[in-house]
Write a protein that binds this DNA or RNA. Structure first.
Lengths: 401, 401
DNA sequence: CTGGTAAATTCAGTTGCTAGATTTAATGCT
DNA sequence: AGCATTAAATCTAGCAACTGAATTTACCAG
């Protein structure tokens, strides 16, 4: 059809504003959109009709049927058509991948996962695994909607342009396996801790917050003044400095690693711990330590306390240097972290100044990164709805369904 | 005078784009503006005429007279009229104020200063001093141009909205003395270290850099991903965490303070230092220590080395946690800091990982904050040229020629 | 003086918004 | 049932402001 190729600047601007309103608010009336876009009713309704015809929004029950108004002519109501597009989030971790497909309202339609041998260094394999997984969740989502954005979280620094630095080994390069070139549509690569931060930010928006991804290593996703930080070479949130600053050689080791290390050291130093001593030292995990502490084991409790103190130190730095108000600990062990956090909150007043940051454990568990990926995909859309709309334009916008 | 009150959205947008181009590029031709704004020649020239009539831009010698083109009809050239507006920057320090007035191209037209007793706690006095000083530099600038923006740098945390937290004492509140309510026009309050960072950023733009203001206390201005960080309560750049992290009670003490402290401690511990021991302990300053080190005094050199090591620790944290690439040390002592920086660069490889940040001393000396204030004022204009244009509109933009 | 180049100017044509009048949809009161 | 009331949708003319193309201007070189 005769859809003008170079749609006027103004028109684009207005469509964008309306679409953004549709993304942010749920269902909306013309009057609300008029407030949001400062356009006339005539214009808003005209655009709504067009967007409806194009399939981006849909008309829902009017305000009276919905019980929202009593007098006067009922207002027509529209909302973003959740099925207008699909987004996919992938947590491309070291030892396994998780993916989710969601609609435009963030409703998860399908999930999938793959295990990977963390020690196998095979770029091709990682790429094809992600390709497979994306195809799988897309099919499982049973949605004919076009795939708008795919966000991939990787355990390596990522700069504002999605690139990872060349590290001494090949690890980062392996993790950031050039996904955009090997997947269809718009692909965004982001650091995993950053995505956790976005996930938590989505649940509880706060302008200055951090997510600490505490698995085998600690990595932070930092949100300051409402924006995610990347830094040179994507280095923001890197925690190696702890090594020299805290004058030990522990550095950025995470909860898993520290729990094992300090338990072994304690046992080697002859500490009594019937529960932990009974376990084979080689297969000892953080989960065992948490369980032992729960059961009252003194060594286990000490270990968790030390971990809590370390978290508190990190918190003290983040709150002072960056004005962080809320720190969320995420990762597989997040749900067990409460005893660690209790200790951290306890010592914080001794090593930092008020106001202290809120210290909480993530409720998202293993899904934090994937959820963040979905969240990020949706916020890309919210920020620039037109760009995406144009990505598909060839087939789109012609005739009403 | 029939200028439509609600000038069309599109028109505003285009004027803004053109004005921004005028701010960023120096002199420009219609063709350049067409590229920048993606408008037609007809439109660009129309807007140029209007803006010229309104006094915001001016026509300068054409491209042939300027020797820029040989063939064809010479292109008309325009540029921002530097005299169209005035900006003022103030460094409202604890013990004295400095101010500068500059035109729209950043050329300094006048400077002024006032000394203040740092121990006098008098809000009214501080306000009236700034009012005086602003009036003084404005008059000294001999410019009839309207004052568009005044930026004031203060030694207290300032959040994104220009507010300082209520501290335990009244110091911060005293520093942030509600200037916007007591000065004419648009007034922006910003932290002094942040302004130093902007000053350095203006001279040598780098997306990830920090300014360390090292006077009696250390404070950092942090620029990450090209943006200044503020954090909750304006706390970003706060260095108190050093106190507990480095396990000493020195905390955020600056070069001046540390030089005195460590020299006294050295002397008290019986270190030999004919040069420094000769000076009265009470009036000893950092300048004396720098001079002694220059003259070969061993104690003085040790003190400077220790300061250098401390700077290196801070650098190690900033580069790792935030991906900072360049750290500029600013403040009154900046010009003497080279020996400190030499030591800092020397130890950095031992306590941090490559790539190391560039460590340099500011060349701006005592003017760093005021310069940053001017820089910030101009970038406010660059970001949103229309807002300012509208602030004065009453007399402006009346009839078409 | 003429041809060539590159810009400025002019002007009709078009887009897409706004403002205001009119119409429509529903309820409540008499 | 009929009519007033409310609030929205729709229709219409009017207009601002941009684009595109044709035309004119400015200047140089030969």
């Amino acid at each position: 059809m005769g859809m003008n190729v170079s749609t006027s600047v103004l028109r684009r601007l207005n469509i964008e504003a309306l679409l953004r309103h549709a993304f942010t608010s749920g269902t909306f009336t013309a009057a609300e959109a008029m407030d949001a876009t400062s356009l006339t009713r005539a214009t808003v309704l005209g655009l709504c009709d067009e967007l409806t015809a194009a399939g981006w929004i849909e008309e829902v029950e009017d305000s009276r049927t919905a019980g929202l108004s009593r007098r006067g002519r009922p207002a027509r109501r529209h909302r973003l058509r959740s099925g207008a597009g699909l987004v996919i989030g992938v947590d491309a971790g070291r030892s396994g991948y998780r993916a989710m497909a969601a609609d435009l309202r963030g409703t998860v339609l399908a999930t999938g996962r793959r295990e990977l041998d963390p020690d196998v260094v095979d770029r091709e394999l990682r790429i094809s695994t992600v390709q497979d997984l994306v195809r799988e969740v897309r099919e499982a989502s049973a949605s004919a909607a076009p795939l708008l954005v795919t966000v991939i979280g990787i355990p390596a620094p990522v700069d504002t342009r999605g690139r990872s630095p060349i590290d001494v080994g090949t690890f980062w390069r392996l993790m950031n396996s050039g996904f955009p070139e090997h997947l269809a549509g718009r692909v965004v690569v982001e650091n995993d801790a950053n995505l956790s931060a976005l996930a938590e930010h989505g649940l509880h928006p706060e302008a200055n917050m951090a997510a600490l991804l505490v698995g085998e290593r600690v990595g932070a996703g930092l949100i300051v003044d409402g924006r995610l930080l990347h830094g040179a070479l994507g280095g923001a949130g890197e925690m190696r400095f702890l090594e020299t600053v805290l004058q030990d050689d522990i550095g950025a080791e995470g909860v898993g690693s520290l729990a094992r290390r300090w338990t072994r050291e304690g046992l080697a130093a002859g500490r009594e711990s019937p529960l932990l001593a009974a376990l084979p030292a080689e297969s000892l995990t953080a989960v065992d330590v948490f369980a032992a502490a729960q059961a009252g084991d003194a060594l286990a409790r000490d270990v968790l306390d030390r971990i809590g103190e370390r978290i508190a130190r990190i918190a003290a730095i983040l709150v002072s240097l960056l004005g962080i108000e809320r720190i969320v600990l995420a990762g597989a062990v997040a749900s067990s972290l409460e005893p660690v956090l209790v200790r951290a909150r306890e010592v914080l007043p001794d090593i930092a100044y008020a106001p202290f940051p809120e210290l909480v454990a993530s409720g998202l568990g293993r899904d934090a990164v994937v959820r963040g990926a979905i969240e990020h995909a949706l916020s890309c859309l919210r920020e620039d709805p037109l760009e995406l709309l144009e990505l598909l334009e060839p087939a789109e916008l012609p005739d009403s369904p």
